[in-house]
């Protein structure tokens, strides 16, 4: 592999963008295809399939066997709210292989003592997300119940197409939340993407149990490749 290919690949990985290294197994020639370049590539179909499946492998082409090495961003979980559930969710999600970030502007909640060894931002979510935007390989869990804090990131997650979006709150709270999301310009059918009540239905009651339920939903969405709009039942044109 040429140094320039490695550096370009690592730049994409640092920016949390998917990329594929294409190796001609006959000639040894290698090139990098960024996600944005897939459609115009001669191997567009095979590249698209490999990216959606998240699997590397060898494909046969007219010019011989080609190895496609798929590099996807590591999954990330952003939790809005440095609350009791987040204290359990953060270490569990880390064990499951997620990069975790907790955001809460309430400095009494967002303290390193309560959240050791976790990326923690005691700031407004909109400020943090402006620096480190959500992306399709990120899950968002809104856990404060407070519209001032939760609504901004929920809107951002719906617009970005995060692979999982969940929000804590009673049915009444959630009904009002959906109204606000629609008023903010989200098409009503898209608001159904917000999982509420949050988490897999396991009868969770305590904060750690709710954290397990949330993580189960996040893993299910990740493994079902919900970062792709067509896997969420949304058409590309919509």
């Amino acid at each position: 592999m040429e140094r320039a290919v490695l550096e370009a690949l690592n730049a994409e990985r640092r920016a949390r963008r998917a990329a594929v290294v294409v190796t001609d197994l006959g000639s040894g020639a290698e090139r990098l295809v960024r996600e944005s370049e897939v459609e115009s590539d001669p191997l567009a179909e095979a590249l698209g399939r490999a990216l959606r499946a998240g699997k590397s492998g060898t494909v046969e082409t007219n010019e011989g066997d080609v190895f496609l090495n798929v590099h996807l961003p590591p999954p990330r979980l952003v939790a809005i709210g440095a609350v009791h559930i987040s204290q359990a969710l953060a270490p569990m999600a880390r064990l499951a292989g997620f990069d975790v970030e907790i955001i809460d502007p309430r400095t009494a909640f967002a303290t390193p003592d309560r959240f050791p060894n976790v990326a923690l931002a005691a700031e407004w979510p909109d400020e943090v997300l402006a620096r480190r935007p959500l992306d399709p390989y990120t899950a968002l869990a809104a856990l404060t119940h407070d519209p001032k804090i939760d609504d901004g990131p929920l809107l951002a997650a719906l617009r970005t197409g995060c692979f999982y979006i969940g929000a804590l709150g009673s049915r009444k709270t959630h009904a009002k939340r959906l109204e606000r999301l629609v008023q903010a310009g989200i098409e009503p059918f898209r608001t159904e993407r917000v999982e509420a009540p949050i988490g897999a239905d396991i009868g969770a009651s305590t904060p750690p149990e709710i954290a397990v339920a949330i993580l189960a939903s996040v893993i299910a969405a990740f493994r079902k490749r919900k970062m792709h709009a067509e896997r969420r039942g949304e058409t590309e044109a919509a």
Partner: peptide, 28 residues
Amino acid sequence: MSAANETPALDVLGTAEAWLAEGRRLAL
């Protein structure tokens, strides 16, 4: 406390780039 821009400890391709920058000769 940002983790987003750091190279994870076990990132093989990040390590490869760092080793190349040190002038080491490598295989992948």
